[in-house]
Amino acid sequence: MNTTFKTVTSSHITISELMLPSHTNFSGKIHGGYILSLMDQIAFACASKFCGNYCVTASVDTVNFLMPIEVGELVSMKASVNYVGRTSMIVGIRVEAENIQTGVIKHCNSSYFTMVSKDSEGKTSLVPGLILTTLKEVSRFQNCLRQIEMKKLKEEQKNVATFGSIDSILNSNKYNIKVELQ
């Protein structure tokens, strides 16, 4: 167990960027892939700031695009370390877009990135412990514990044979599928 501890606040990072026409997809909205790239950058910065090492992305949990982002809006991303393991951290990210003419701010998405600390030789390295100083931080930590448990359950379910359910899928009309096994 690492004996060094840091506060959640010590990990806080905020970035803002004006959305340009070059960031759009074919429908004229800001491309989700571009937003994901920015999210990965802020997750790296947040985790690296917290642990003092180079960090790599191990996984990205659900990203739900709640609201489209328009050209000319100012996108702000806020990140913090919400959970630490031995060598990994879960970074929570909130994405908001502001119409700079009206001042209206909308929540566009939130996500959790699992980041792993690496030493100068590329080996995993210990991260500081986490000091929780507010009920919100405790709540976020608890949410991460639930998220980890759900991920474990999902992995276990992948290994469970479900051959009996194939018939129910084939004989059901509630799925928009056609099976043509060869």
Rank of each mutant, 00 (worst) to 15 (best):
S120D: 14
T114W: 06
I90T: 01
E98H: 01
I105Y: 08
M115W: 00
N99G: 02
G103P: 07
L126H: 12
C108N: 05
R86Q: 12
S88I: 05
N159K: 14
R86G: 11
I90C: 11
T133D: 12
K154Y: 10
N159E: 08
N143V: 02
T102G: 05
S88Q: 05
T102I: 03
C108F: 00
V91W: 02
P128F: 02
N82S: 07
K152S: 11
N159L: 12
Q147L: 15
G122T: 03
E156K: 09
G85N: 01
T134Q: 08
E96Y: 09
L132A: 08
V104W: 06
V138A: 15
L153Y: 08
I100H: 00
L145M: 14
K154H: 09
I148S: 13
S111G: 10
H107F: 09
G85K: 00
N159V: 04
T133P: 05
T114G: 07
L153T: 08
S120C: 12
K106W: 02
R140C: 09
S139V: 11
V81E: 01
Q101R: 11
T114S: 07
V81M: 05
I100E: 05
G92C: 04
K136T: 14
V91N: 01
N99V: 02
K154M: 09
Q101F: 09
Y112R: 10
I148F: 13
S125Q: 15
T87I: 03
T124N: 15
R86D: 14
G129Y: 05
S110M: 11
C144M: 04
C144R: 02
Y112C: 07
L145D: 14
H107P: 06
S120Y: 11
M89W: 02
I131Y: 07
C144Q: 01
F113G: 07
N99R: 01
K123E: 14
K123R: 15
E121C: 12
M150H: 14
K154V: 05
E96N: 10
N82Q: 10
S139Y: 13
T133M: 12
I93S: 02
K106V: 05
M115C: 03
E149Y: 14
V104Q: 11
V138M: 14
R140E: 15
G129S: 07
C144W: 00
S139T: 13
T133F: 06
R94L: 13
L135V: 10
G122L: 03
K152N: 12
L132P: 10
L145T: 13
I148E: 15
C144P: 02
Q142N: 12
D119M: 07
P128V: 00
E156G: 06
V91E: 04
V84M: 00
F141W: 03
E137D: 10
I105A: 04
E137A: 08
L132E: 08
K106E: 00
S120A: 14
S120H: 14
